[in-house]
Amino acid sequence: MRYQSGQTAKLVEPNEMNFLPTSIVDSKRLSILVWNIFKQKRSECIHFLDTYANTTALLLLQEAQTTPQLINFIHRNHKIADQVPAYTFKDVYSGVMTVSNVTPINAIGFKEKEPLIRIPKSALITQYQLLENQKTLLVANIHAVNFSLGIKIYNQQIKLLLNQLATHEGPIILAGDFNSWSRQRLHILYRLIRMSNLKMVNFTSDMRKTFMGRPLDFVFYRDLAIDQAKIIHTDASDHNPLLVDFIIN
């Protein structure tokens, strides 16, 4: 689903292309915010998003729900938001959402059912034009499956997403809530990331959400340079957002 300022929500068809893309940036800098927003349960969530709406090129959100408050945020800040609904309840869709100032060249959605509770988690790949004569940027936003006894479905979901990135020639960002709370999950994640020639963003002051002592949120990248990366402490969600400023090579 696509939500756009001044327009009604629309269903984006598979392989629907934007043949007149606008560059996502107007300089060599690209700033992103990655955040599980906890279904907007806490009152300060939308205010926090407003704070970073004009200083980031991309907001990669997990557990985003299409409440009136979030839809108003999109319209008020003249944004374009693409969402893969994992599930719907009382006409409110929930899933990963990537928010930008421009329409992506294309978008591909994925869903994977939780093995135990059978409620899906979603992932989204969007592609954006960079500066004139530059290659395009591929952005993958994921909320990984959580409730499983083994690692088969987790491995399947991560591998499927990375297979979609493998053929892209140009910069890549892969980020989100990976639910990497076990040693086995972290091992799979790190192994697949190395095989895909992606690098991990490291944070000096690491205040990422953890479970069982392991971080859940990550940013991985390729063919970009890092200017700065930090984690912002907030009570607006049960996760702290990750803010990364990239330099386009």
Rank of each mutant, 00 (worst) to 15 (best):
78 H>W: 08
79 K>M: 03
80 I>Y: 05
85 P>W: 00
86 A>N: 08
87 Y>L: 06
90 K>Y: 14
91 D>R: 12
91 D>T: 10
93 Y>V: 07
93 Y>A: 09
95 G>S: 03
96 V>N: 05
97 M>H: 09
97 M>Y: 07
97 M>N: 01
98 T>K: 09
102 V>A: 08
107 A>F: 02
108 I>Y: 15
108 I>K: 08
110 F>W: 10
111 K>T: 15
111 K>I: 15
111 K>L: 11
112 E>R: 03
114 E>S: 01
115 P>D: 10
115 P>E: 04
116 L>K: 01
117 I>L: 01
118 R>F: 11
119 I>L: 07
120 P>C: 02
121 K>V: 03
122 S>I: 03
124 L>K: 00
126 T>P: 02
126 T>R: 09
128 Y>D: 02
129 Q>A: 12
131 L>A: 15
134 Q>T: 08
135 K>H: 15
135 K>L: 02
138 L>T: 11
139 V>T: 03
139 V>I: 12
139 V>C: 15
140 A>S: 01
141 N>G: 01
142 I>E: 02
142 I>T: 15
142 I>K: 05
143 H>I: 11
144 A>R: 04
145 V>L: 05
149 L>P: 09
151 I>F: 14
152 K>Q: 13
153 I>K: 12
153 I>V: 08
154 Y>D: 06
156 Q>G: 09
156 Q>H: 14
156 Q>D: 15
157 Q>E: 11
157 Q>H: 08
159 K>I: 06
163 N>T: 08
164 Q>W: 04
